[in-house]
Design a protein around this nucleic acid. Structure first.
Lengths: 332, 332
DNA sequence: GACTGATACGTAACCGATTACATTGGCGAC
DNA sequence: GTCGCCAATGTAATCGGTTACGTATCAGTC
């Protein structure tokens, strides 16, 4: 039952040809007679031969897989991202090798080192690491694409115009008449979090409104709720709130309602990402086409691998304001 | 810049030892002097040497990666499953190689064939394929674990007691006084879908209630809504509804509300899975610990790889009824 | 001092593909 | 008939590791 799988030599012997001919038949080379190819194909079918991927990789220095290094896998954001990547990868005939990278640069380096020799290129998402750290960790000989991190000079980076998104949220709140604004950002050392806040604050200031309240969260639901609790406890008041992602906005909404505040009458709330949950909860948000960011990253990486070019670096996916009940009222 | 990465021979030359010693130092073998190991390690650091994974795989027939073949990647169910697998895999020092498998058995076979030689084992989830098809496609020499599919004699299978889950849902609806029940199942050729329906119907019949309405969906939100629309259009009436997963239940709830029906007063609704969305929408459901199914599958697979044993086959993850507003009333 | 055994290390075969280069055979031109 | 050329095929080197086996060194024993 558990027998040694057939090798290319077994096939050659069975078809009565040399290994070179088998290889040629297999890879669709020109200089081989149709009849020979037929014999080889029959032998392959007979023996249920499947080429050994490791041997092939070693020989031609290609693996047919792309490495994906993500900071986390929790929630719909990552599931959409992976879905988009998988779609594009399988269209190009690549598989995805998945790994999560922790905030600790040493461990992050490990995650990347492990990929060497197993992938033809890597897609890295590491908003929690600085540009220098990422540059230092990326293996030089491996094509790489970055997703949603500070633009790099060396590698293409598919991202989001975070500042514009933050500004869009602020302007929307101002447009519906809110003047005392608040913002819940992500970790201070997260690139996206800082950008979104900066865009938000800038838009508010430019409009001549009061300086907004700022709280620091961690992109999880709980931290949104905690931020609201703290403000209310301190007696800070606000009538418009933007969170740096939808999950924190949802946590914030729950906390607001728990304190008897109505949405949007007392506080209008807007998030960021437009995860599916947002639609169901009537949460206004900034829509990011996450799956497309994933496909885009893969497409660019494959292009790099195929022609050795780096191509244009920074590239931003378009954003879109989606106004729902949490800012406009009406059915939740 | 783009220079050839260092090989083991470069390291050997630099350290003034043979390749065998480098390999021994690298893999923590016994018979090597501390001083030699030190020299090797220094050379490795100097050259920034990283072993070539393909060569290593070829030589010792181990890859350090696990293949994961899933039917789809859409929604929180898969995101949780992958998260659980990734956690366990990285604990054991493995990476995950991801691939989606389509319903077409030929394509499904391809997905598995591509994995050969790149992985030490595979985890397959293919509820849409028959037992025979899966058995025929699974490479014989590769350890495999199945997730959420009909139990197999050859491979461990981590699953859900779907019948029990279906019955739990039915009994809950009956317990709160509902008598005219309905069920929205998944594809007829999906194993889980059939099992859940059977459990549901059996519990209803056993309790002496009228035979329930049955509609066929596809696990997507829309199909839940369509099922409800069809029933209402036909004039079928029901006061208790179970869907085979949460997404269809959510679609059904929207359709019910759109027709002015109140939940749970007019129709009590219960789903299956307990995805995060369910809690936010107050949907009663059968909780499945999805991430744990993922870790469990990986742990079993790793055990199989390590000791060559197959271990116990069928294994069911426990289920739990979670009653919320959609059946009990109260705040949504 | 010759022999034994253990220890540290080197040499070279091997894993299973790809492919540069060598070889063969067939055919047309002379 | 011989030569040259080309297409089809075979031989063997190669990719970068691991490891079986061989060898050198040294301490300990008689």
């Amino acid at each position: 039952m558990k027998q040694r799988p057939a090798t290319i030599r077994d096939v050659a012997r069975r078809a009565g040809v040399s290994v070179a001919s088998v290889s040629r038949a297999l890879n669709g080379h020109e200089n081989i007679r149709e009849e020979t190819r037929g014999r080889v194909m029959r032998a392959i079918a007979d023996l249920q031969y499947v080429p050994n991927a490791a041997a092939r990789s070693l020989s031609n220095a290609k693996t047919g897989t792309l490495g994906v290094v993500l900071p986390d896998l929790y929630g719909e954001f990552f599931s959409e991202l992976i879905r988009g990547m998988d779609k594009a990868a399988s269209d190009h005939g690549y598989l995805l090798l998945l790994s999560t990278m922790h905030a600790d640069p040493a461990l992050a380096g490990q995650a990347l080192a492990v990929m060497r020799g197993r992938v033809d290129g890597v897609i890295v998402m590491a908003p929690q690491l600085s540009r220098e750290t990422i540059d230092a960790l990326m293996p030089a000989e491996l094509p790489g694409v970055e997703v949603i991190s500070e633009a790099s000079a060396d590698r293409p980076s598919i991202g989001i115009d975070n500042r514009a998104g933050g500004a869009m949220g602020a302007r929307h709140l101002l447009n519906i008449g809110r003047r005392r604004l608040a913002h819940i950002m992500g970790h201070e050392n997260n690139f996206d979090a800082r950008q979104r806040r900066d865009g938000f604050v800038e838009a508010v200031t430019k409009a001549g409104a009061a300086e907004p309240l700022i709280a620091i969260g961690d992109f999880r639901e709980d931290s949104g709720a905690r931020a609201v609790e703290n403000w209310l406890k301190r007696g800070d008041s606000f009538d418009g709130l933007m969170a740096a992602n939808d999950m924190m906005a949802i946590g914030a909404m729950e906390a607001l309602r728990a304190h008897g505040l109505r949405i949007p009458e007392d506080v209008a709330v807007i998030g960021f990402d437009d995860i599916p949950l947002a639609r169901h909860l009537g949460l206004s948000t900034i829509r990011v086409h996450v799956a497309e960011i994933g496909s885009d990253a893969v497409n660019r990486l494959v292009a790099m691998i195929k022609n050795g070019q780096i191509g244009p670096t920074a590239h931003n996916q378009p954003l879109e304001l989606v106004a729902r009940a949490s800012t406009l009222g009406g059915p939740a």
